[in-house]
Lab assay of single mutants.
Amino acid sequence: SMGQARALMGLSAQLDEELDFREGDVITIIGVPEPGWFEGELEGRRGIFPEGFVELLGPLR
């Protein structure tokens, strides 16, 4: 894990590789696949999402 982030708003996945989450969910960050995107894990599910949907809870490791 690289850190954690809290969802500022919900994301309804449009693509298979995207992660669904609700506002307030705390997501474990597991990677940065490309600039502007995070890869995360939530409730046993993994996927990517735009960084603008979340606030980091501390610096990434």
Rank of each mutant, 00 (worst) to 15 (best):
W37V: 12
G31Y: 00
R6E: 02
W37H: 02
F38E: 02
Q4C: 11
S12Y: 11
F38S: 00
E18K: 15
L19W: 01
S1A: 15
I48V: 14
E18R: 11
L60D: 13
D20K: 08
P59F: 03
G10H: 15
I27D: 01
E34H: 12
S12H: 15
M2F: 10
M2S: 06
Q14A: 09
D20T: 14
R45Q: 12
L56M: 07
E17I: 11
L11A: 10
D16M: 10
A5L: 06
L8M: 04
L42S: 07
I48Q: 15
F53V: 10
E41F: 05
F49G: 04
P59A: 00
E39A: 06
E51I: 06
F49S: 03
R6Q: 06
I30D: 03
F21I: 06
S12M: 12
E23T: 11
M9V: 14
G31K: 12
E34V: 07
G36A: 01
I29D: 03
S12V: 11
G40R: 00
I48E: 03
E17D: 13
R6M: 11
V54G: 01
P59M: 08
I27C: 05
P59E: 07
I30F: 09
D20G: 12
L19C: 04
L56Y: 01
V26A: 12
A5W: 05
L11I: 05
E41T: 15
F53G: 02
E17V: 11
L11N: 15
E51C: 15
E23H: 02
E55G: 05
G40V: 07
Q14G: 13
L11C: 11
I27Q: 06
L56C: 05
G40S: 04
E18D: 10
I29S: 02
G3Y: 04
Q4E: 03
G40C: 02
L15Y: 12
E17K: 11
G3D: 04
L42H: 13
V32D: 05
V32I: 13
V32K: 11
F21L: 09
S1M: 14
P59V: 09
E34C: 09
F21V: 03
E55C: 04
L15I: 14
G36W: 04
L19K: 03
F38T: 00
R46I: 09
I48A: 02
F49Q: 05
G47H: 03
I27L: 05
P59D: 09
R22W: 06
A5P: 00
E39N: 00
P59R: 03
W37L: 07
G58Y: 07
V54P: 05
G3M: 03
I29K: 07
I29E: 01
L60C: 10
F21C: 06
L11W: 09
V32G: 08
